[in-house]
């Protein structure tokens, strides 16, 4: 099945089986390895991408739904100033990044800050509730998200 969609700002045309997961397409066909597959049920959040402007677990997106959609992966997002704000905010709070989940967490934090530039603790925890990696302490993570919001607000 030929599918045309926008991947990281570029129009692409691929020939894939419609029942294939987007997670696998990104990793195997395009070499975008920051989206990671673990649970394949959408629960762990490690495969999060932006799908039509919203965060979504790429393991739960079949290829046939990609047609004319817009997909953004961490690889593209990591080049933006928004991403650097989040990385700085987290680092300032002493958050120790985990190679496994941090890319997805950063996308989730970006989605949160876009809708709510000054989230409170509950809102941060609720937004991050879709991430099931227990690598970090939540105190520094919450502090880091708040820092990132402040840094971003100052820059904009």
């Amino acid at each position: 099945m030929n599918i045309r969609f926008t991947l990281n700002g570029q129009d692409v045309l691929i020939d894939v089986e419609p029942e294939r997961r987007v997670l696998n397409i990104l990793r195997e066909d395009f070499g975008y390895f920051h989206a990671r597959g673990t649970c394949y049920t959408g629960e762990c959040g490690a495969c999060t991408i932006f799908f039509n402007g919203e965060i979504a677990p790429s393991c739960l997106i079949p290829a046939f739904t990609l047609r004319e959609s817009k997909v953004i992966t961490f690889e593209w997002f990591s080049e933006t100033e928004d991403c650097q704000d989040i990385i700085k905010g987290l680092a300032d709070a002493g958050y120790e990044s985990c190679k496994y989940c941090t890319p997805a967490r950063i996308l989730v934090i970006h989605a949160l800050l876009e809708n709510n530039p000054r989230p409170d603790e509950d809102e941060i925890l609720r937004a991050l509730s879709g991430m099931r990696c227990y690598c970090s302490d939540y105190t520094s993570l919450i502090e880091g998200v708040k820092n990132a919001g402040l840094i971003r607000n100052r820059r904009r």
């Binding site: 959408g42 629960e43 799908f51 879709g130």
Partner: peptide, 12 residues
């Protein structure tokens, strides 16, 4: 609705 799945799942 806030209790349905995770934030990412709720977008789908």
């Amino acid at each position: 609705l806030l209790g349905v799945g995770t934030p990412g799942i709720r977008n789908l």
